[in-house]
Write a protein that binds this DNA or RNA. Structure first.
Length: 281
DNA sequence: GGTGCGATCGCCT
DNA sequence: GGCGATCGCACCG
């Protein structure tokens, strides 16, 4: 495996993140979390900041592919009944377009009891069980039956609680999970954030137990750092299996499955800058 | 590290 | 009755 040094990137180096240094890139990213001390003293840090960074209907009301990319870098927050807030940055998503998208549960406009949430207003949560034992979480977008699957998060806070929730579903004596292993898969993130089946059809824009925030410290245009690759686990759906509808942050250690071919084909903004510099020098 | 396989049950045909 | 937008573990090199 080749290890490519990255320049000018706010993202960690996944390739070089060996086990013993695994927590380091995450720590560096965590230092970018917003600082309530920056809020003017006469305002309540909690309410003023929280209101301004929570994403509302207008964010979710965009075409599916746009929303899938827009999710990257945003922070999913889960508030437990005891008040504990679990937070994770979205680093990997997939777009399911509905209609002609044969890999979508809503392919052909098919509407069932299970997938009703996909047809509800943008921002509606669609939670469904898979393989009898797992759950996956989607969020509906613009477009009939279209939704975005949340595949991976970078844990930002509440990691110990997440580890406990994940361990509860594993064999006793299983190895302690590393931080990057807590939410690196669609069902893993549901376990780690205690996303339950009853969250189906709830509104991510207004719910009191789960919501999405932008990260004011990381309002960067990461379009050039997004890798587009075929979706996972849809191989049986012909041409739709090969369409690049999975999106992830290049080089991030919490991505569930890397696709080196797609990474080569999706040139990063760093590469583009370097190419541009080489051309002008 | 990469790969292969079994678990397990709700949903849909 | 068959299958699946997954995961964990054993095994191999």
């Amino acid at each position: 495996m080749t290890t490519r040094k990255r320049k000018n990137s706010l993202l960690p180096q996944s390739e070089s993140a060996s086990d013993q240094t695994d927590a380091e890139p995450l720590k560096r990213l965590n230092q970018c979390q917003f600082d309530t001390n920056s809020v003017p003293q006469h305002l309540s840090p909690y309410f003023s900041m929280r209101e301004s960074i929570r994403l509302t209907y207008s964010f979710f009301n965009q075409p599916c592919i746009d929303l899938a990319k827009a999710f990257l870098g945003k922070v999913l927050v889960r508030k437990l009944t005891d008040g504990t807030e679990l937070r994770g940055r979205v680093v990997e998503t997939e777009a399911y377009l509905g209609g002609e998208d044969k890999a979508s549960h809503s392919a052909g406009g098919k509407r069932t009891e299970r997938n009703t949430a996909m047809f509800m207003k943008p921002g509606t949560i669609y939670v469904y069980p898979i393989y009898g034992i797992y759950l996956c979480m989607n969020v509906s977008s613009q477009g009939e039956g279209a939704a975005v699957l949340l595949r991976s998060l970078e844990p930002l806070s509440g990691q110990d609680v997440m580890r406990g929730l994940r361990a509860a579903k594993r064999k006793a004596g299983a190895k302690i999970l590393k931080e990057k292993e807590l939410c690196n898969g669609p069902s893993k993130l549901c376990q780690a954030l205690d996303i339950q089946r009853c969250f189906d059809r709830r509104d991510l824009a207004t719910d009191t137990e789960v919501w999405l925030e932008r990260d004011p410290e990381r309002e960067i245009d990461c379009a050039g750092e997004v890798v587009s690759a075929p979706r996972i686990g849809v191989e049986s759906h012909g041409e739709w299996a090969t369409k690049p509808l999975r999106f992830y942050l290049r080089g991030h250690p919490c991505v569930s499955v890397l696709n080196r071919d797609a990474e080569r084909q999706t040139q990063s903004s760093t590469d583009l800058r370097n190419t541009e510099m080489e051309r002008t020098v």
